[in-house]
């Protein structure tokens, strides 16, 4: 695998070349109100890669918060269905500068939506998306990627991977998709130098030192459901206000609701929208019966699903330790604390 240097002062050239290839570049930057978001950028200066990752989850580029699925018209000859999708689905885009936690989240989402009956609309978004990962040098105080088995400098799942230094990036083209846009970078690629191999390690060490803790969750992998009846859940469900923030900002939360809209006697459409298992209406039957009637059951379901059910079904945690759930929670519930409580309850 070849590694080259690409200097930050040359990045605008790359961005123009990418634009000429018809690609939109999306990365983290500040909006007009100084909020850190993922947004489309036209120049390298608009990026703010030195900041922590935005609160906004990266999944909104593969699956928008609401999306029309199809529109219909009832005619004398029968019902006519027109599959629909946002224009953004066909737009060729590069997600530029995703941390390993977010790249891993995209890998998980791909694996989940592709299983059993593949989700064609989401596949459409994914096939038009190229992922440029970046080694993470600035974690937040909520981050716990290493707890979930992800290194802050892991390039797994990325099409292209960057390792940042003060003046340049080290760049690796890892997949066919990544190589397909190598031409945009070609003019600016410089040879790497002797000690360039050390950068990743340096960043990894510095980031790991910044993380507040690493919890050994391997010890409870496959056993988390044994904590189902333990008393510690009440501590969290008492103060949880079921705002849904953790699920909406989580890059690996995949649940959605499906609704129909009737625009006239003969026309209408069906759409889907992000949904949350924290909401009471999530499991509400038409009869009025609700299997998860209390906040405790819903909070426990979320944790069980992320840390046990997906392990059983897909052999992977559906959590990348990005910390967004902790950052967004208005009442200070900390997922790492829940993991530690599970460990304690299981004497691990």
């Amino acid at each position: 695998m070849d590694t080259n240097r690409i200097y930050k002062k040359d990045m605008n050239q790359v961005f123009s070349a990418l634009k000429k290839l018809g690609m939109a570049v999306i990365g983290q930057g500040f909006d007009e109100k100084q909020r850190l978001v993922f947004k489309e950028v036209n120049s390298f200066q608009e990026l703010a890669l030195q900041e922590i990752t935005p609160l906004q989850p990266v999944k909104s580029f593969l699956f928008p918060p609401t999306e029309t699925m199809f529109s219909y018209q009832k005619t004398e000859k029968g019902t006519r269905l027109t599959p629909e999708q946002e224009a953004g689905a066909s737009k060729k885009k590069i997600l530029f500068g995703l941390r390993p936690c977010d790249v891993h989240a995209i890998e998980y989402i791909q694996k989940f939506y592709n299983g059993n009956f593949p989700d064609q609309p989401i596949s459409h978004y994914i096939e038009n998306t190229i992922v440029v990962g970046i080694a993470c040098a600035t974690p937040s105080n909520a981050c716990f990627c290493t707890t979930m088995g992800i290194s802050p400098v892991s390039s797994s799942g990325a099409d292209i991977f960057l390792t940042p230094t003060d003046d340049f990036f080290l760049i690796e083209f890892l997949t066919e998709k990544g190589k397909s846009i190598q031409s945009a970078f070609a003019a600016s690629l410089k040879a790497s130098e002797a000690n360039d191999g050390n950068w990743k390690q340096k960043i990894e060490q510095s980031t790991i030192n910044s993380l507040l803790e690493k919890i050994n969750v391997e010890a409870i992998k496959g056993k988390v459901n044994q904590a189902y009846d333990k008393p510690f859940w009440k501590k969290y469900s008492d103060v949880c206000i079921a705002c849904g923030g953790c699920t909406f900002d989580c890059p690996t939360c995949t649940c959605f609701d499906v609704r129909d809209v009737m625009e006239s006697k003969s026309d209408g459409y069906r759409y889907r929208a992000w949904d949350s298992c924290s909401f009471a209406s999530f499991t509400l039957h038409a009869s009025g019966h609700n299997p998860r009637n209390t906040k405790l059951e819903r909070l426990r379901q979320r944790i069980m699903h992320k840390y046990h059910y997906t392990v059983a079904n897909m052999q992977t945690w559906s959590c990348t330790g990005c910390g967004r759930c902790i950052r967004v929670c208005p009442v200070g519930i900390n997922t790492r604390s829940i993991l530690k409580d599970i460990k304690e309850a299981l004497h691990e």
Partner: peptide, 25 residues
Amino acid sequence: IRCNACRNVCPACFCSDRCVMDKPK
């Protein structure tokens, strides 16, 4: 993004699980 956090955190919004925005429309 219609996450409903503003509504769920609000003490004045006491319809809670019976909110008009949630019921099948």
